[in-house]
Computed example of a mutant assay.
Amino acid sequence: MEWALKYVITPAIIIGEYQGGAHYRNAAAARDAVKKEALRRAGIGYNEVVAGQTTPSELRRLVEKLVDKPAGD
């Protein structure tokens, strides 16, 4: 099952999306291109986490980069 994990912060500054194994079927590439271009034009960052390609350590680095860590951590 494909699902997306999205956190909405007003105003949005970044979007994260999980691409499950079934994501790349049919017209997904065209939809993704439109979505990515719209986000780029709006000045909103976009990050993908792809099933079977993104390692846990890569995901951890991405989250650490995007989330403010408390002082001393």
Results as ranks from 00 to 15, higher is better:
residue 1 M to E: 01
residue 1 M to K: 13
residue 2 E to A: 12
residue 2 E to M: 10
residue 2 E to G: 09
residue 3 W to L: 09
residue 3 W to Y: 15
residue 3 W to F: 15
residue 4 A to T: 13
residue 4 A to M: 12
residue 5 L to Q: 01
residue 6 K to M: 03
residue 6 K to V: 00
residue 6 K to D: 04
residue 7 Y to E: 04
residue 10 T to I: 04
residue 10 T to L: 10
residue 11 P to N: 08
residue 12 A to L: 09
residue 12 A to E: 05
residue 13 I to V: 03
residue 14 I to Q: 09
residue 14 I to L: 13
residue 14 I to G: 04
residue 15 I to F: 02
residue 16 G to D: 06
residue 17 E to S: 05
residue 18 Y to E: 06
residue 19 Q to N: 12
residue 20 G to E: 02
residue 20 G to C: 02
residue 21 G to E: 03
residue 21 G to C: 04
residue 21 G to P: 01
residue 22 A to F: 13
residue 22 A to Q: 12
residue 22 A to G: 12
residue 23 H to P: 03
residue 23 H to D: 08
residue 23 H to F: 09
residue 24 Y to G: 12
residue 24 Y to K: 05
residue 25 R to G: 00
residue 25 R to E: 07
residue 26 N to R: 09
residue 26 N to C: 10
residue 27 A to E: 13
residue 27 A to C: 08
residue 28 A to S: 07
residue 29 A to G: 15
residue 30 A to W: 13
residue 30 A to H: 07
residue 31 R to E: 03
residue 31 R to H: 15
residue 32 D to F: 03
residue 33 A to E: 10
residue 33 A to N: 04
residue 33 A to H: 11
residue 33 A to I: 03
residue 34 V to A: 14
residue 34 V to M: 05
residue 35 K to C: 07
residue 35 K to Q: 08
residue 35 K to T: 07
residue 36 K to G: 01
residue 37 E to M: 01
residue 38 A to T: 11
residue 39 L to G: 02
residue 39 L to W: 00
residue 39 L to A: 00
residue 39 L to S: 00
residue 39 L to Q: 03
residue 39 L to F: 06
residue 40 R to E: 05
residue 40 R to L: 05
residue 40 R to G: 09
residue 41 R to N: 13
residue 42 A to P: 01
residue 42 A to Y: 05
residue 42 A to W: 03
residue 43 G to C: 11
residue 43 G to M: 01
residue 43 G to Y: 01
residue 43 G to L: 12
residue 44 I to C: 10
residue 47 N to T: 02
residue 48 E to G: 06
residue 48 E to V: 01
residue 49 V to E: 10
residue 50 V to D: 12
residue 50 V to W: 01
residue 51 A to I: 13
residue 51 A to P: 07
residue 52 G to L: 06
residue 52 G to R: 10
residue 52 G to D: 07
residue 54 T to E: 14
residue 55 T to V: 14
residue 56 P to A: 15
residue 56 P to Q: 15
residue 56 P to S: 12
residue 56 P to L: 15
residue 57 S to D: 12
residue 57 S to R: 14
residue 58 E to Q: 15
residue 58 E to R: 14
residue 58 E to V: 03
residue 58 E to H: 06
residue 58 E to K: 08
residue 59 L to M: 13
residue 60 R to M: 11
residue 61 R to K: 07
residue 61 R to Y: 03
residue 61 R to P: 08
residue 62 L to W: 01
residue 62 L to D: 11
residue 63 V to C: 07
residue 63 V to Y: 02
residue 64 E to D: 11
residue 65 K to I: 06
residue 65 K to V: 02
residue 65 K to N: 00
residue 66 L to F: 06
residue 67 V to H: 08
residue 67 V to W: 07
residue 68 D to F: 14
residue 68 D to C: 14
residue 69 K to C: 02
residue 69 K to T: 14
residue 70 P to T: 00
residue 72 G to K: 01
residue 73 D to E: 00
residue 73 D to P: 06
